[in-house]
Design a protein around this nucleic acid. Structure first.
Lengths: 251, 251
DNA sequence: CGATTCGTTGACATGCTTCAAACTTCGTGG
DNA sequence: CCACGAAGTTTGAAGCATGTCAACGAATCG
């Protein structure tokens, strides 16, 4: 039985909180009162608990403080479609219907700490447009996923995912060359539209090519440029910087 | 050589404009002045012209008045990925980067009339949240596409597209049973992640099943329930109503 | 009327899924 | 602490859906 993540609040000061790379959410709050309120809104909880489920009423969005989150839908015939993974610093939970209901479910992939941003603190115009620009960021990620699903083969999809994770970890101050996959092969498959077996086989193949090393959930990227070439990723500003500093100048 | 759609403004009064089903954009403008300004912002233009291209500066979004629009990206290796099709009443052009640049390109599929909504008219809080809810609608469509690309076979994808179009035409007061595909097989393929040949073959197959009749771009849906069953579409509010009134009670 | 674009159909190649089985890791309870 | 079962991962073999290549017919346009 899964309990709601809201059950055991853990209080922290905002200024001690630093998802490396900065808290996107904080940019949305310009009044000191709002920030103060926010300090009471940190929650931490364990693997496999839901932050929210599709259809629930939504009065807030979230920022990942540490850990990781999986966003997903359940199809008509009970299958899962993963929409994305959120890492520290990422905003999630913006996708609500006009009636303020959740359009997707969000579940913890590991022990995770998140921040709650009630919509009530955001009644200010500037914040509305900031929200919109975060929503736009989300859309861009979505577009990338569509592109991947529509045009790439298994190698390209896996390479894309790993390149994306590397890039995002790097932009937050973590290593781009070695990290842990917090999601299962199953999750990866549901995200990329591949069977688990294909995910496993593809990782093995990339390893044989010398592009990376995999052991269960541990990944080490040996050839960033090669990986990116296989991925055929469209560039964005973060990726460009990542590329210049990491891909082209091996660490 | 493609000229910009902004070249030949055609002026109309807002009150004479009625994409059947209503103009979503109008809900965003509550001041009479804004509406007045808007009346000068209608444009009409011909097939294959661009409304905007990826990377251009964005100071407005659009509503389709009549005709249809294709939104797309170009991949690294020059291939096209169609993101969606917009029909009369639809809002498009909301997906801009934080730096207010277009994240995708939009091109006319036929002779089309659109309305321009400059961002300058929307500096008001209530409108910010209205925009966000339209963005959310867009996200929901995106989610459906991802789901389709990741989980459905060719039959399911084509059935989904047709069911979606039928539903959207119906909700705007047009026939849900017979309509024209304004996009080419190529466009459909780029949207659904299928080869042109597969699109063609699948349409033929659906015809042989007696679900529909196709002749070039003319489509007649003979068995709405069957089509929807093949599509395995996730329900949304419009679709539910469409389902009750059209699918379950054959026209 | 020819040239071009678009749509359809066939034959073949291939990459992914499915089915099956073995192995590892982890949690639980004896 | 070990035994056991469940869940996650890997690997192999076979089937199939879709992509690719090629040719042809139909519509459109100048």
């Amino acid at each position: 039985m899964l309990s709601q993540i809201h059950s055991h609040p853990v209080l922290h000061e905002c200024h001690t909180c630093e998802p490396r790379g900065g808290c996107l959410g904080l940019q949305l709050l310009n009044s000191p009162e709002a920030r103060q309120q926010l300090c009471n809104a940190k929650k931490i909880s364990c693997k496999a608990e839901h932050v929210f489920r599709e259809g629930e009423d939504a009065d807030c969005f979230y920022v990942v403080r540490s850990g990781s989150i999986k966003s997903y839908l359940v199809t008509q015939d009970g299958e899962e479609q993963v929409l994305g993974f959120y890492l520290p610093g990422d905003v999630f939970g913006l996708d609500t219907t006009a009636a303020q209901q959740r359009m997707s479910s969000a579940i913890l992939l590991e022990t995770t700490s998140i921040c709650r941003f009630p919509h009530a603190y955001l009644t200010d115009m500037a914040q509305g447009s900031a929200l919109l620009s975060i929503a736009a960021e989300q859309m861009q990620r979505d577009h990338n996923l569509m592109l991947m699903l529509a045009r790439k083969d298994a190698d390209g999809r896996i390479a894309s995912l790993l390149d994306d994770l590397a890039c995002r970890y790097w932009s937050r101050g973590y290593s781009a060359s070695a990290f842990l996959l917090t999601m299962s092969r199953q999750d990866i498959g549901c995200y990329l539209g591949l069977a688990v077996e294909t995910v496993s086989r593809t990782l093995t193949r990339l390893q044989e090519c010398g592009v990376l090393k995999v052991n269960r959930r541990e990944v080490e990227i040996l050839d960033h440029a090669g990986l990116r070439k296989m991925a055929g990723t469209r560039v964005n500003s973060v990726a460009v910087e990542y590329c210049q500093k990491v891909v082209l100048r091996p660490v």
